[in-house]
Deep mutational scan, measured.
Amino acid sequence: EDDHHMEFCRVCKDGGELLCCDTCPSSYHIHCLNPPLPEIPNGEWLCPRCTCP
């Protein structure tokens, strides 16, 4: 699979289990988001950068 997502968290710059945005290459740990997510959501997810007006 050709995955163009970042291999590190945009916030802390560390790797591991990352949540990938469905519209851009950004990846995040769920605990690095503000507010943090309790678990990885099902379905499409947009990062804070893509949901800002």
Rank of each mutant, 00 (worst) to 15 (best):
S26I: 10
W45N: 04
T23P: 01
H4F: 15
C52Q: 15
M6W: 06
P41L: 06
P48G: 05
C32T: 00
L46M: 08
T23D: 05
W45M: 04
I30W: 06
F8A: 09
M6D: 13
C12V: 02
L46F: 13
D3P: 07
P25S: 09
P25D: 07
R49L: 09
R49I: 13
C47R: 02
I40H: 13
H5A: 14
L18H: 02
I30D: 04
C21S: 00
C21T: 00
D14K: 14
C21G: 02
P35M: 05
L37M: 09
D14W: 04
R49K: 13
G15E: 14
C24R: 02
G43A: 10
L33N: 02
W45E: 03
T51K: 11
G43E: 10
C12D: 01
E1P: 04
E7A: 05
E39M: 09
L37K: 08
L19R: 05
C20L: 13
L33Y: 01
P25Q: 06
K13T: 08
C9T: 01
T51W: 09
H31N: 14
E1S: 03
L46G: 08
E7S: 05
D2R: 13
P53S: 04
C21V: 00
E1R: 02
R49M: 09
C24W: 00
D3I: 15
C50Y: 00
E44H: 11
L18F: 03
T23Y: 10
E44G: 13
S27G: 06
C52M: 15
S27T: 11
N42W: 06
P36I: 07
P53T: 03
C32Y: 01
M6E: 15
P41S: 06
E39S: 13
D22R: 11
T51M: 09
L18W: 02
D14G: 15
C24H: 00
C50N: 04
R10Q: 14
H4P: 05
C20I: 14
I40Q: 12
S26Y: 09
H31T: 11
P25I: 08
H31Y: 09
G43M: 07
E39K: 15
H4Q: 11
D2Y: 13
C52H: 14
G15V: 09
E39T: 13
L33W: 00
R10M: 05
V11F: 05
L18D: 00
H5I: 15
E7Q: 06
H5K: 15
T51R: 10
G43Y: 06
